[in-house]
Deep mutational scan, measured.
Amino acid sequence: MEVRTIKVFTTVDNINLHTQVVDMSMTYGQQFGPTYLDGADVTKIKPHNSHEGKTFYVLPNDDTLRVEAFEYYHTTDPSFLGRYMSALNHTKKWKYPQVNGLTSIKWADNNCYLATALLTLQQIELKFNPPALQDAYYRARAGEAANFCALILAYCNKTVGELGDVRETMSYLFQHANLDSCKRVLNVVCKTCGQQQTTLKGVEAVMYMGTLSYEQFKKGVQIPCTCGKQATKYLVQQESPFVMMSAPPAQYELKHGTFTCASEYTGNYQCGHYKHITSKETLYCIDGALLTKSSEYKGPITDVFYKENSYTTTIK
Rank of each mutant, 00 (worst) to 15 (best):
3 V>L: 14
4 R>S: 12
11 T>L: 01
15 I>N: 03
21 V>H: 13
22 V>Y: 05
25 S>M: 13
38 D>E: 13
38 D>I: 08
41 D>Y: 07
43 T>V: 06
43 T>C: 05
45 I>Q: 14
54 K>V: 14
56 F>M: 08
57 Y>M: 11
59 L>D: 11
60 P>T: 07
60 P>F: 15
65 L>A: 10
67 V>P: 06
71 E>L: 06
79 S>V: 05
81 L>F: 10
82 G>K: 15
83 R>V: 03
85 M>E: 13
89 N>F: 14
90 H>Y: 11
90 H>A: 12
93 K>R: 14
99 V>N: 09
101 G>I: 06
103 T>W: 07
108 A>D: 06
108 A>T: 02
110 N>P: 01
112 C>Y: 02
116 T>G: 03
124 I>H: 06
126 L>E: 03
126 L>W: 08
129 N>V: 08
131 P>I: 03
138 Y>P: 09
138 Y>C: 14
139 R>I: 04
140 A>G: 06
143 G>D: 05
143 G>E: 01
144 E>A: 08
148 F>K: 02
150 A>F: 05
150 A>R: 02
155 Y>W: 01
157 N>K: 13
158 K>A: 09
159 T>M: 08
168 E>H: 15
168 E>Y: 06
175 Q>L: 10
176 H>I: 03
179 L>F: 08
179 L>K: 11
182 C>R: 09
192 T>E: 15
192 T>D: 14
200 L>H: 12
205 A>M: 00
207 M>N: 06
209 M>L: 12
209 M>V: 15
211 T>A: 06
216 Q>S: 08
217 F>N: 02
218 K>Q: 03
220 G>V: 03
222 Q>E: 12
224 P>Y: 09
224 P>E: 11
226 T>A: 14
226 T>I: 13
229 K>E: 15
231 A>N: 02
242 F>G: 05
245 M>D: 03
249 P>V: 14
256 H>G: 08
259 F>G: 00
259 F>I: 06
262 A>H: 05
263 S>V: 15
264 E>S: 09
270 Q>W: 09
274 Y>V: 00
288 G>Q: 00
289 A>C: 11
294 S>V: 15
294 S>L: 15
295 S>M: 15
295 S>K: 12
298 K>N: 11
300 P>T: 15
310 S>P: 03
310 S>E: 08
313 T>V: 12
